[in-house]
Write a protein that binds this DNA or RNA. Structure first.
Lengths: 226, 226
DNA sequence: GCAAAAGTGTTAGGAGTACACCCATGC
DNA sequence: GCATGGGTGTACTCCTAACACTTTTGC
């Protein structure tokens, strides 16, 4: 069968990743600088056009690898962006994904065939991006706030474990609120999501903190307890 | 700018709606019978290929209108399906949406230019559909279960209001579990989501039931109360 | 010993759960 | 009056929220 209707022609799919980290209490997103048109020399999220012979996740991981060097990251579907004019080249529908990664565990490629720079950018410094990528980041960040409350997505931020004060600061940075130390600890422990490693970590001049790690477990609580 | 790379050609977007209702305690989904290839004479969800000059929601509503006659329905993005071979015609990525509608308030078109029949089908009788539509229904139904616990999506099932026993049966049908009458009522009222209309509805031989209605309010609770 | 930050416990209030009784209707 | 099903209240438990003291370290 052949498609002849011109209304169906000239369409493509973008797969795009909002990759977040939390660095010293600041939430950052990975941006790359584009080498090519459209939006040459503009900052943008990692991602690109899907090939017609690859599945969505394969294309996404290929794009992430090509443009950032990151090869080992879990990405979750977040949203879809399809305004007719969102790309100046052709009709592109963007499928957006979210990932979280430990900034210290990954070497970001500063330059690739298609990018001239790559920077972890604090959320409040994000502006003037290519395409509708600012909107995509906003939608992903909202979802991230939700996900840290309903999943173990932060496990990938702490591959070697974490102390309670550390992870609490991460929650506070992402949610933008202050939390009570004692209740936070009790709540996180009660979820059966993390476990004590038996180790401690010492910072200068302070009492050593216990190190916990995430269990290999998916949490997906529902709210409404009827 | 022109796209010459063949890897980017021959792609299209499906917009697809899983439209659910609850009819006498049975959850049903709207299926249409296709008149044309591919999957001629197969049952399928309402939906079709997006035009390259229309936004996603516009294309979706056009398809829903064309193939079912339904013109007034809220649809929510649910999921994306993009396996390379999900369509035999060309590379199609499907964006799936979810809607709920009162079966008594809508006249479904039994035949259209592209469909030869339309039926509200109980979920457990759904089988042998076109494309990956069974998978799409499964994903949408899971999300529906979640949404009735976290949003006022059921408002569209009861445009004229509802009684507590009625809506409880609806929750039970969708969730597949039994609920305690007294606690269900208290919980639903405590959410500040519905209000008493002051009216009652009488069934034969029974005490009249109060009629409630949904407030115009979006509910999006988070779970984890830290 | 002192400052800084980590660890722990207690209590009051609110939400969830389980359960029993009264009430309005049609026949 | 009786069967059917709708409406309401209460006690127990558990989770949450607010809050203060003790412990360990480096200097």
């Amino acid at each position: 069968m052949e498609v002849t209707n011109p209304l169906y022609r000239g369409q493509g799919i973008h797969v795009i990743a909002s990759i977040f980290t939390v660095d010293h209490g600041v939430v950052k997103v990975l941006l790359i600088k584009r080498k090519n048109e459209p939006y040459k020399d503009k900052w943008a999220l990692v991602g690109g056009a899907l090939y017609n012979n690859e599945d969505l996740m394969d294309g996404l991981k290929r794009e992430v690898k090509e443009k950032s060097g990151i090869s080992d990251i879990d990405l979750t579907l977040i949203d879809v962006f399809g305004k007719v004019d969102r790309s100046p080249v052709m009709r592109m529908v963007a499928i957006s994904y979210l990932g979280v990664i430990d900034i210290n565990r990954v070497n970001i490629l500063k330059e690739t065939q298609k990018t001239s720079n790559a920077v972890w950018t604090p959320l409040d410094e994000v502006s003037n991006l290519a395409y509708d990528h600012e909107e995509i980041i906003a939608s992903s960040f909202e979802k991230l706030k939700h996900m840290i409350l309903n999943s173990n997505i932060l496990a990938s931020l702490f591959p070697d474990g974490f102390t309670m004060p550390e992870i609490q600061k991460t929650y506070e940075a992402i949610l933008g609120i202050q939390l009570d130390r004692r209740n936070f600890r009790r709540k996180l422990l009660s979820l059966d999501l993390i476990e004590d490693t038996g180790n401690t970590q010492v910072f200068a001049g302070r009492k050593p903190a216990k190190v916990y790690r995430f269990k290999d477990k998916i949490l997906d609580i529902s709210v409404f307890n009827i």
